[in-house]
Design a protein around this nucleic acid. Structure first.
Lengths: 227, 227
DNA sequence: CCGATCGCCGGTACTCAGTACCCGAGGGTA
DNA sequence: TACCCTCGGGTACTGAGTACCGGCGATCGG
């Protein structure tokens, strides 16, 4: 049993070299030379050169799925928020490693694509969970997908602010962002087939804005143009 | 000037071979052999083997940007919907080619990642446009990003249904999906200090829903619930 | 009509990621 | 001791992507 596991040595060597020379300028041989292991070992440990950047993806995904599956129908919305929080805290715990990964994904298109595709998995997990929660019907498929996209987007928004060093208190921002996001979907009734009442807010009273409303409604809405 | 341009021959050969043998089982040499051109020509025409699957990406992106930039502040929301419609119609016009691409992206992880990453560009374009439209302030950054994500998600939702053969009338579904999506954000738009006009759609005319509006406005609107 | 130039295409040779396969070292077991 | 099992290393190969060079035809100026 080695003092430092092979896997950790490879990750350290890879990130160090990527920072020094850049991703494309670093070969797998460079990494294995610095880590003091054979090339074969690298590809046995990671499926590809890209994978060394995203090591714990599967662990996080399973944790999120477990958190969602451990909820009841009544606590589903909370579970979604808390599962997202798991992801956020995962990256916060990584600290500088997450920041280094962010720098790499910003500068190397292939890594950016890989990261985005990985994030799509979370979208899918949340979409299926929310859709099931909504009953799984065809009419709720779009709303489930929109809600899943919103949750993932809100998470990414806060995470990215922290990764860029734009905030040192990401978790309060996360709470606020999630509240904003969930409100989008829970704050009003979904309209039935007979059309719906649209709830809106303004500082003026209804009669003041009514002429504006009538004007907007009097225009054809099928193929609106603005040029 | 060749009867069939080299570029088109390469695309045809590539898609045909990908369908016959699969993506990974087809080499670039196979493609160039069938197209009757040299290997060098392939990499001069497309940056990579993957690129031959996503040929007109730049064209569509520029069309969308042009549509957005051609709008005014008042017609921004319509522009977002119409720019998304450009994307939808682009894929509809491709017909079987878009379907073949969809089959490939479902079965080849690398292509799926590439497609998702490409879609992220639309998210970014819409996000920046909407954020600018909202004034560009820090407090509206999240809402702009959420709205952009929702628009892209709604578009993808309908497009995917068409790609999977689940609908033969995608454009009416697109209209409905976009109405649902835009309503999420406009129906309860947070008013500025001077308040604002809220755009909404309903199947009934204004006078029919007016009592409902008056009733809702008379209630506290901070934390409305529907369960 | 002729030579020069330019753009397009093909060929060659190279780097490097990723795969398949083989081999030896060590460690546990009968 | 003989056997096996696992793990790590080495070798050789395929194929994507790059760099570079040379040919061929078209156009243009003289």
């Amino acid at each position: 049993m080695p003092v430092t596991p092979t896997r950790a040595r490879l990750i350290d060597a890879a990130f160090a070299l990527f920072e020094e020379r850049g991703y494309e300028q670093t070969t797998v041989d460079d990494i294995t030379d610095r880590a003091g292991v054979g090339r074969t070992t690298f590809f046995r440990t990671f499926r590809s050169k890209e994978d060394v950047i995203f090591p714990d993806h599967d662990v996080l995904r399973r944790a999120i799925e477990a958190r969602l599956n451990g909820s009841t129908h009544e606590t589903a919305l909370v579970a979604v928020t808390e599962a997202s929080r798991l992801a956020l805290r995962h990256y916060l715990a990584e600290g500088d490693l997450a920041r280094a990964r962010y720098r790499l994904t910003r500068s190397v298109p292939a890594l950016r694509a890989r990261e985005i595709a990985g994030g799509q998995q979370y979208h899918r997990i949340f979409r299926e969970f929310i859709h099931t929660w909504m009953g799984g019907g065809r009419e709720s498929a779009l709303k489930a997908e929109l809600m899943a996209a919103a949750v993932v987007t809100a998470h990414n928004h806060v995470l990215r602010r922290w990764l860029r060093g734009q905030t040192d208190h990401p978790e309060p921002e996360f709470d606020a962002a999630m509240a904003t996001t969930v409100d989008l979907f829970t704050a009003r009734q979904s309209p039935g087939p007979e059309g719906g009442i649209v709830v809106f807010r303004t500082t003026k009273d209804l009669d003041t804005v009514l002429p504006g409303l009538r004007h907007l409604l009097s225009e054809p809405a099928d193929t609106p143009r603005d040029d």
